[in-house]
Write a protein that binds this DNA or RNA. Structure first.
Lengths: 223, 223
DNA sequence: CGGTCATATGACCGAGCGGTCACATTACAC
DNA sequence: GTGTAATGTGACCGCTCGGTCATATGACCG
């Protein structure tokens, strides 16, 4: 946790420091991210930084914690419109809100994504925890869908959870690629608003795939 | 490209250096990987390293090139058993060989994987190229499957290619997770041989999902 | 043997890093 | 004002990095 000094900072300065730190850890992995660069960009002395944070790891943990906190807030702020919706509609909502978060906080999302892929000091625990929780949650949804007959009974819940997990992990990057966007250069919010129809179409096609699979049902059928 | 000196090295020494370099770049991203650590582990002088490679980037490029070359070799050495097989069988083969490569060369595969995710000096070009090529190839397969009636006509080829791409990207890590393996600690070849049935089962379930999707076809049907 | 050329070496360089600390500056209580 | 506590500062430390280079070693040739 940052020291009290950090939270006593005027909001403007605190936010500047936070944003610059997020950017640094979005652009570099933990080892390569540089406190010296952050303080230089922020225009503060190196010593001042260490009045706010115990060390580099303290800052990094704080960024990840904030990322999780903001995402939770975001999910709560965008609840599913209908609690009785069917599973596919719920999955659409789940993925959509995840994408929206990535659009609202692309740099912060990148820090978290990097933490999951690259080696970071807390990687083994964090990565394992997040993957396990994500797979468990999606697996639960699938099992529920099987139980109430929306999904076919022979579906392997773990396999399905994995595919959903893989898709949700890659979806954001893929959409950016398809829309020709770069979160370094583009204003995502504006760009996505402009290309919303195209994005929605791609998204729908992917969700349709997950629902019906690839096989031509006129010849084969679910096992 | 390495200098001639490197290729003149006795094979044992050359292989040791190569393996240690692969390990270093598998465990660290480009910036964090250390030439000093490699030469220390190899027991050679720093100056000697620079008789073999022009600089750090030269070594890194060589590792990636070797990774691609070895994978190509591997694919050629394990061709699909039947050139007239249907698309699903072909996809199973494609993914299976990718997994086998990852088992045979886990560290080298990790270097390449890291190059695609983290920021590396050649990342923007490489990542874009490999993703584009992978998506294009899978998209072509899907279009072909649609044309010959194996896949249903309304399937969006790009969306399908994306899901296949995402799954193939995550599949290796997921299987290791499900089997409780760690390529740092375990002898993958031996472990996978021992747990082959379990691995095969998980793999089959995932492929079945891709084929038939999730929906209960007794109620809904392909669009 | 001597001569030549490829290779091996490690001290060394400048730079950047995370982190520290003695000191300067501010803010506030009285 | 004066005293005190909180905050800001940047020179500095020890370390590691990628990379260089003068020099040493050894292999091959006549």
């Amino acid at each position: 946790m940052p020291k009290a000094t950090f939270f006593n900072l005027p909001e403007e300065k605190r936010k500047l420091l936070f944003d610059l730190a997020v950017e640094e850890f979005a652009d570099n992995d933990y080892e390569s991210a540089s406190i010296s660069r952050i303080v230089a960009k922020a225009g503060i002395a190196k010593g001042s930084f260490y009045q706010y944070f115990a060390d580099k790891l303290d800052l990094y943990q704080f960024l990840l914690d904030e990322g999780i906190r903001l995402k939770m807030e975001f999910l709560k702020a965008h609840p599913p419109p209908d609690s009785t919706m069917n599973l596919f509609a719920y999955l659409r909502w789940l993925f959509k809100v995840g994408l929206d978060y990535q659009i609202m906080h692309p740099k912060l999302a990148k820090v978290a994504q990097r933490a999951l892929y690259g080696r970071s000091p807390i990687q083994p625990q964090l990565n394992a925890r997040i993957r396990t929780e994500s797979l468990a949650y999606l697996g639960g949804l699938v099992r529920q869908g099987i139980a109430n007959g929306q999904l076919h009974a022979d579906l392997d819940a773990d396999a399905a959870a994995f595919v959903l997990h893989a898709v949700s992990k890659e979806l954001g990057d893929y959409l950016m690629y398809r829309l020709g966007l770069d979160h370094e250069k583009d204003d995502l919010l504006e760009a996505v608003r402009r290309q919303n129809n195209e994005a929605q179409h791609i998204f729908d096609q992917i969700m349709t795939f997950l629902e019906f699979g690839m096989v031509n049902s006129k010849k084969g059928n679910a096992p």
